[in-house]
Design a protein around this nucleic acid. Structure first.
Lengths: 217, 217
DNA sequence: GTCTATAATTCGATAGAC
DNA sequence: GTCTATCGAATTATAGAC
């Protein structure tokens, strides 16, 4: 009781209390990821966050809404990183390497939520969830496509290529690596299984320079 | 009964009876894919193939073995296609487009088994299963890597790139498209959601020519 | 089919901040 | 005084056992 009162005093400004909400999102992410949507109980999430169940429902109206908020938060986290990376200046190949490595790093360091999102995407339930997931994720995707388009109009990238296909190819490479990183170890002649960052860079080497033979450095 | 006897007579050589075995594999593939490994019952598979349970166990010693055989068969099916495609002559970009389209077509027309394989790869259970799966799949992967390496030594492809990374990038693009084809429809500015073959071609455009600006047709 | 355990959701009240 | 975060208890809903 005394502890609760103390916690109240620590937040001085901001209309809605940030600490509890954030703690809640973090715990929810971990538990949803560990047990899946159905397997996770609001009671466990509340306990983990050291908050009463009712408070959870006060912040997020329902289990579903909490779940969506978890995913949305993860996407927005990456959106921030994305902005930082794409705003930089420098040679295009270096910026692409930077993007690819940051993206790889992001999905690996948030592996639980990444698994969650991938699982969610796979069951194509036409509920509100997927709609929102797609809306949220597509914002990041569009940001990357715009970046590529922009570079094309400035003649910095090959204009003949479809920017959305290029963007998706980049993302595919990272996601595939992420999903199968455990078994990739057993591919003969594949040196990158436990070196995600070098792999991300090698992918950009392929996609930026192209497989075509006429390379002159 | 008469039909079965006839079938027996048609096979003159080969130690194990082919027609029943094939029918069995097809039914098993469909049922494993529909119900998952645990959910599938040997009784249902036997019934579907119009074969007695004992016959199933005669051909494949166990449920696990049947399951593995299904996956192995799918991989070998593709190995045949792969050989046909890679043996062709012609400009490298056309051959790569051919490969990418054939591969896309293969995973789409075998979508149930593809889902099965992908699910199997994701749970990295270190049992015999995964070992075999990896061995089988890696044969096809190596075939593609060898093809790229070969082309590189003949100066037909950019020698600076890692052939296994290039191969994996190709496969990643198709698999990602396959896994998320349902939700890709909802990406704004993405025209390929229901056009897998054009997408496969567009991916090769990107990976063959590269994002780099200095394209001179 | 009822019974029961588990989990989601709602209600009413309290306390501190402005 | 209103607003919002918080809680404990009460109320459905659902899934599995018998």
């Amino acid at each position: 009781m005394a502890k609760v009162a103390t916690a109240h005093e620590t937040r001085a400004f901001e209309t809605d209390g940030i600490p509890a909400r954030e703690r809640l999102l973090a715990c929810a992410a971990s538990i949803f990821a560990k047990r899946g949507y159905a397997g996770a109980s609001m009671a466990e999430i509340a306990a983990e966050a050291d908050i009463s169940k009712s408070t959870v429902f006060h912040h997020f109206g329902s289990k579903r809404a909490l779940y969506l908020a978890v995913i949305e938060t993860a996407a927005q986290d990456f959106a921030a990183t994305l902005e930082t990376v794409l705003e930089k200046t420098g040679p295009l190949d270096e910026r692409l390497v930077d993007f690819q490595c940051q993206h790889m790093g992001h999905i690996l360091s948030n592996e639980l939520v990444t698994d969650l999102v991938l699982r969610e995407l796979q069951k194509s339930q036409s509920t509100e969830s997927v709609h929102l997931v797609r809306d949220v994720l597509s914002a990041n995707f569009m940001r990357l496509v715009d970046f590529i388009s922009e570079a094309q109009s400035q003649k910095l990238l090959n204009e003949a290529l479809d920017p959305s296909v290029a963007a998706l190819t980049l993302i595919s490479a990272n996601v595939f690596f992420f999903q199968h990183r455990k078994v990739l170890k057993h591919l003969p002649n594949f040196d990158y299984a436990d070196r995600p960052q070098p792999y991300a860079k090698a992918v950009i080497d392929v996609i930026f320079h192209g497989l075509d033979r006429d390379r002159s450095e």
